[in-house]
Structures are given as C-alpha cells and as structure tokens.
Design a protein around this nucleic acid. Structure first.
Lengths: 330, 330
DNA sequence: AACCTCCCGGAAAGCGTTTTCCAAAGTCTG
DNA sequence: CAGACTTTGGAAAACGCTTTCCGGGAGGTT
C-alpha cells in the first residue's frame, strides 16, 4: 500500500508538501514541487487513505441515509435526490435500510455517528411511540452534540431540520377534488394506525369531507405497502371512491378490485398519494397528489449540510392530479 | 467528543483494556474490569471512532456498491439483496450511482478504494469499449492489489468474480416459448448497441429463432430505459410479437402501443426480461424471464467477501414466465 | 541598506484506535 | 514446591494523514 510518505520521498519533498498538493489545502505550493509530487503520486498509484484523512481532519466526507426500504420507489426517489446533491458536493453516501424496524433506525444512527458522517438523513414516517421516539432522540442528540447534522424527510421530528409534505393539506385538497367529481361516499386505506404520516393524510381527508358536510369515510387499516392496500381493498364495499394514503397501496387496491371483478373507475374510483413515477404506466393511470420526492431528498440534504443553525422545517405542498382512476359521477 | 482514553481513565484501566472490552478482541478481560469499562462507556456515551479504528486495523467495515440508477427497480432489487447480507455481516454499505456514465463508475471505484472498503460490487451492464474497460480494470487491479475484493452483478468482467444471468439462454428460451405460442414475426427492442448484456439477449433470441427456422427479428435500438422502450416501440409494425430486452423497456413499449391504439396482446404480444416485482400489477401483466435479482445481489456480495481466491462466475438461469401480455396465435 | 511583510517548505505534534511486547500473577505438573 | 505454562493488564509503538509552528528567502518600502 503506497502512502503519502512514499510519494513525498519519491518526489523528494516533505510530507507536508505532498499533503498540500494532493489533498487540498489553503496553502499554496510552488509549481515545480507541485509537479514533482503529482508525478510521483501518479507513478506510484497513490490513493489517499480516507480513514487517516478523516481521523486527522476530524471530519469525514460521507453522509448517511436511513430509509425503510430501498425497493419501495418512494424511498428510491428520495434517496436519488439526496445522492445527487451528495455527488455535487463530493460526498459519499452510506445507506441503511431499516425494513420498518424502529430499533434498526436507532442502531443506524448510532453506527453513522461512529462513522462520524457529516450528516444523516432520516427518511420516512415513524410510529408514534413515546419510548422509541425518546431513544431515537437521545441517539440523535448524542450525534449532534459532537457536530453531527440531521434532517428528516417526509416526517417531522421536533427539533430537527425537516422537509415534509403538508399531508393534511394535500389530502384535504384531494378530498375536495374528489367531492368535486360528485363522490359522496368514501373509504380510506390507511396504513398502520400508529404511523404518523398516513394518519395525517387520513385526518386531512376526513376533515375536508366534514367541512363539505359529507359523511365520514370508512377507514381501513393495513400494512404500509402494496399488500396492505390489497388486503384493505378486499374489505371495501358500498363506496364510490377509495383513497389509498400511498400510491403503492393504491396499486394493491387496484389489483384487489381487479381480482374481485370490480372495475376502476367505472365501479369505483381510486386515488393515491405521492405520484410515484415508476407507476405512471399503470392502467388506469392513478389519480394522486404529486410530491417532488427527489427534490425533497435533495433539499433535506442541502439543509442538513448548510451551516445555518436552528431547526427549520420546509413544507412542500402536494399538487392534486386527477387521471383515469377517478371518474366524475353522473 | 468522548474518546476511548476518556473511558479508560474514567474506569481506571489502561487504554488497551478498554479497547479490548469495547471493540472486540481475541483477548479476555477479567470480569470486574470488563464491567467497569462497560459502565464507564455507557455513562460517558462513548461511540467508537470508526475512522481511527479503520486506520489502526487497516480494514474497514464498509462495502461499496456501484449501480447505474437507484430509481430503476432492477438496481434497487439487486442493491436490496446485497444490503441484506451486508447487514447480516455487520457491514455498512456505501452506494454510488453512475447514471450510466462509465467514467463515473471508474471514479467511484477509485473513491471506494480510497475508503479502503472491504469489497466493491459493480452492478449492471457496461459498454463494450476497449479503453474504458482497460481504465476500469486498471483501477480495479490497483484496488485488488492491496487486498480489495470485487464482484460484478449482471455482467461478466473477465478476471473478476461475477454473478450473471445466462442472458443468451434465457432469451433463447423465451424465443422458443413465444414461437410455441405461434408467433413467427418478431421485433426486438434492444437498448444501446454497445451495451453488452442487452446485446447478449438479442443474440440469444435471434439465434433461437434461426434454429427454429424463423425469420430474423427486426432489431431496434434505443436507450436502456422506459423512454428507450417507448421510442423503439413507436417504430414497430408488421410483427405479432415484441421482445423488449428489459421489463422497464417493455413498460415503455406497452405505453407506446397504448398511445398508438394498438392493443396488447390482441394486436401484438409483448415480453420483457428480468421480472421486476414492482411491475407485477401492470395490465396486461408482463410475460418475461424471471431473474432472482435480490438473490443475485446477495450472492455476489457473499462471493466477494468469501476468502476463497480465484475468479469465479456464478451463472443464474432465468425462468420464462408467460402472462397476459403475450397471447397464443390462432 | 535596513526593516517589514509575505510566501513557501519542512519538522513534528497530534487525531483515536489496535496490537505487540512485557511483566506479573496464577495454575498445573511431577 | 520448583519449574513450565497460561492468563491477564499495561506501556508504547504503529496506522497515514493534517496542520501548526518555524525559519529562511524574496520582494517592497523608507
């Protein structure tokens, strides 16, 4: 393994000079020495030892990303956005997937802290559990005490920078749009009861219906994925419109209705939330609330990296998009 | 920042002892001291500085993953499989996305080398370009010279461990299956001309047709994504069956046919390759060649991590799955 | 010419671990 | 109970880089 010292010796300069030439520094190095060093480095095939660099500098050039499930296009989109800004800033990205296990999320924060990553992004909704939240916060505080930066995407965690969609507002807008199509009876496929983001969407949706003087929707809980949507949709009957709190769940619902011989949108309308682009080719195309997922990931990382102090929250508002899966009633 | 030295002092033991207790070692430490150290660490909130550890140990506990595009479910599935084994082995994963830029792939290998990652996984097909391949190989060799381990997924790179689908065989089997349905005239949506994996699929498909005494397919090139499939499909006419070398491209083709008013499978049959699970709810459901993507990622990482020397290649064979997008003729 | 500044190169002190040696204290054997 | 092992704890030398501090030379000003 060729070290900086080898390069320095080979170039006939000091370690300090070699370091200044190769690994960036505020200090200038004279042209002749600079060339010698660069040549030596190239000849020997020198590669900086990042661990040593990190140790000496006291700061690494990697950021951490904690997501629930990378194969879920929602998370993939956000991760992609974040990775784009990481790349711009010359940072590497370390990813951990929790598979929706809160303990794992906490463990990852701890590990990323040990790695002394520059920032960590927590992506996705968390369950409303006193103890887990406290544990997570403790871990985050420990990390931040020593200069770590944290931001959340998709869910607010008090005292932490966050980029969050206005779930209530988006869901309410969707409810009004669907009511505008003439729908009066609704079901909501709601995801797990304790998960915060979906519950906000349910609440926003229900509140808007109430304001419009419409009957409260039938709320069905299920897991926060395609299967949950499918399972919940099998229990739906007697409504003209179904709101799945997630596009992914809506896909499950679509499948369930197809299997049951219920036509969408002729027999029942279906709407989702998120506007996952991988899903744009579904038939019928899905009405939804568009969220700029990649941008959210990007903004969150930018925010976490920004030197500015104080917890900030950026709220992004979703845009209702009506497509083929919802139809206007007579 | 609390260091191991702080912990040692607080516990009244030496640095060596503290290290042995907290960060794993072959050496035993007496029960009483062990407890003292653990207590001190917990009280002070000690977190190992991984950079220092890596430097001292000369080996990190992270692996690198280089993919083209994380939002493409093909890569997400493979990455997910690899991450599962990383998690099992207590390794962190660093991901780089090249966005199909070969230079970027090379740059990532270099960066991951600098990080002294334990292994790097190169996922996805590469272009057949002399010079780029040589550059990549040089970078890989440099990495491997110093103990780095490398494995490829989805594409063979001579001299490197690899888990690859048998693209020719899979495509040939698909061709035979489609011919078995009565199809005689085919188009192939083939992706970029220089990309190796898709070209193998095209070749396997064409060879099988020839063996069957059927006319050669119309081969249309395009980009290796949904848009490429869409664009290529707009030029298709006069065939009863279209083979897109990728499910993702097949989705584009489906969309194109829909826009052109061409019904699938009534007017034309469409088949893909990969069996992306996110796409299972498409209507019509896609005939394809199933590849165990997650498992491929997992096996590749296991192979890279295994101490055994010598380049090995694991070939996985695809399984033809006929669904609704292909129909039997007369 | 004397004095001040700047600039650039090098020596060396860290950064926080791991690990190799030693030494001391047990634990066995015969 | 002496000698030979085996454990267990500690001192200190790496690991490969960054950065502070110093000194010397070049250039500019009176």
């Amino acid at each position: 393994m060729v070290t900086l010292e080898d390069v320095a010796r080979h170039a006939g300069v000091s370690l300090a000079t070699a370091s200044r030439v190769l690994n960036g520094s505020t200090r200038q190095v004279g042209a002749s020495l600079r060339v010698k060093v660069e040549l030596a480095a190239a000849q020997l095939g020198y590669r900086t030892n990042v661990a040593a660099q990190t140790l000496a500098r006291g700061a690494s050039n990697v950021v951490g990303l904690v997501v629930h499930d990378l194969t879920d296009p929602y998370f993939a989109a956000i991760a992609d956005g974040a990775m784009r800004v990481a790349e711009e800033q010359g940072l590497m990205v370390m990813i951990g997937t929790t598979h929706r296990d809160p303990q794992r999320e906490i463990a990852y924060v701890s590990t990323l802290n040990a790695q002394r990553v520059r920032a960590v992004l927590l992506v996705g909704s968390r369950v409303a559990d006193e103890q887990l939240t406290r544990q997570l916060r403790e871990e985050l505080d420990r990390y931040r005490e020593t200069g770590g930066r944290v931001a959340c995407v998709g869910q607010d965690l008090l005292g932490v920078d966050a980029v969050v969609p206005d779930n209530r507002l988006g869901a309410a807008a969707l409810a009004r749009a669907l009511a505008g199509l003439g729908h009066r009876s609704f079901a909501v496929l709601a995801g797990p009861e304790r998960l915060i983001a979906p519950m906000d969407r349910v609440a926003g949706f229900a509140d808007a219906l109430e304001e419009l003087g419409l009957p409260a929707p039938l709320v069905l809980h299920g897991s926060f994925d395609r299967e949950g949507g499918y399972a919940a949709a099998t229990q739906v009957s007697g409504v003209t419109c179904v709101f799945a709190v997630t596009d992914v769940m809506a896909v499950g619902a679509l499948a369930a209705f197809r299997d049951r011989g219920i036509r969408v949108p002729e027999d029942v309308s279906v709407a989702g939330f998120d506007d996952i682009s991988t899903l744009r080719d579904l038939v019928p195309s899905l009405s939804t609330v568009r969220l700029p997922l990649a941008e959210m990931g990007a903004r969150a990382l930018e925010m976490a990296l920004a030197p500015d102090e104080g917890a900030r929250a950026q709220v992004v508002t979703g845009e209702v998009i009506l497509r083929e899966s919802t139809r206007a009633l007579g």
